[in-house]
Amino acid sequence: MTDFAQARRAMVNSQVRINDVTDYRIQDAMAELPREKFVPRSKQAKAYGDAEVEIGEGRFLLCPRDLAKLVQAADIKSTDLVLDIACGRGYTTALLARLAETVVGIDADAEMVARASERLNEVRADNAVVLEGDPRAGVPDQGPFDVIVIAGAVDEVPQALFDQLAEGGRLVTFVRNGPVGRATVFTKGQGSAIGERVVFDGTPTLVPGFEKERDFVF
């Protein structure tokens, strides 16, 4: 039987701390959250490995190193309102809930929304809620958000999500460039101005629905 508590400690020590994740809040949250409960039972033995874990058809939970570095890049404050896009089974939502004041997750898969809600209740993430809906559309009636997280790769970020950022708000995700995903922090300035900076590279799987729309050819 896998000792998940020991696996969590090993994950933080060998994948998170050594990769310049210096925010102790993130280290502590990842050391405490039972990652194995947020993946299918058949995948629990792989929950703490240094690779993505499949959580459903075409859906993956980011590897610990990439997720920790992405969340750290978002610079989440304890007073922030955060939106977790395509939240899947809720692990990222639960992690964000340890850092922010309130977290809203959204996913198009009703079964995953139900499982995420159950797990968030189990880990007592009382400041987080998961809604069923179109991740590309976000949750405009709940914003504006201080931080928006898309924990996977995208070809492009929908304008609707930028529109839901508060002034000074940050959106973090991996923008795909060929096989490589560039972890990027988008920051909203005055009006609709959006600045961006690349913080590191990774190879996460594309989030379904965030493929670049093909141009119509006559």
Rank of each mutant, 00 (worst) to 15 (best):
M1S: 14
M1G: 14
T2N: 12
D3M: 07
R8N: 09
V16Y: 02
V16H: 01
N19M: 05
N19D: 09
T22I: 11
T22L: 07
D23A: 11
Y24A: 14
R25A: 13
Q27G: 08
Q27H: 03
D28R: 04
A29N: 01
M30N: 06
A31N: 13
A31M: 12
E32W: 12
L33S: 02
P34H: 01
P34E: 09
F38I: 00
V39M: 04
V39H: 02
P40R: 01
P40Y: 01
K43V: 01
Q44K: 06
A45D: 07
A47S: 10
Y48W: 07
A51T: 13
E52S: 04
V53G: 01
V53R: 04
I55L: 04
E57L: 02
D66P: 03
L67Q: 06
A68V: 11
Q72E: 06
A74S: 05
I76C: 05
I76R: 03
S78L: 10
D80S: 13
V82S: 08
L83D: 09
D84G: 09
A86W: 05
A86H: 02
C87W: 07
G88N: 08
R89I: 04
G90L: 07
T93F: 08
E101Y: 14
T102R: 15
T102C: 10
G105T: 13
G105I: 12
D109L: 11
A110H: 15
E111T: 05
M112C: 13
V113F: 14
R115I: 11
E118S: 11
V129C: 08
G133E: 14
G133Y: 15
D134R: 12
P135W: 11
G138P: 14
V139W: 14
V139S: 14
P140D: 10
Q142R: 15
G143V: 06
D146A: 11
V149R: 02
A151I: 06
G152H: 07
A153V: 12
E156R: 11
V157D: 03
A160N: 12
F162V: 12
D163H: 14
Q164N: 13
Q164G: 12
Q164W: 09
L165I: 02
A166W: 09
T173Q: 02
V175H: 05
G178V: 00
R182I: 03
G189H: 08
A193K: 12
A193L: 11
R197A: 07
G202K: 00
P204A: 00
P208D: 02
G209L: 09
F210E: 00
F210C: 03
F210I: 03
D215Y: 05
F218W: 04
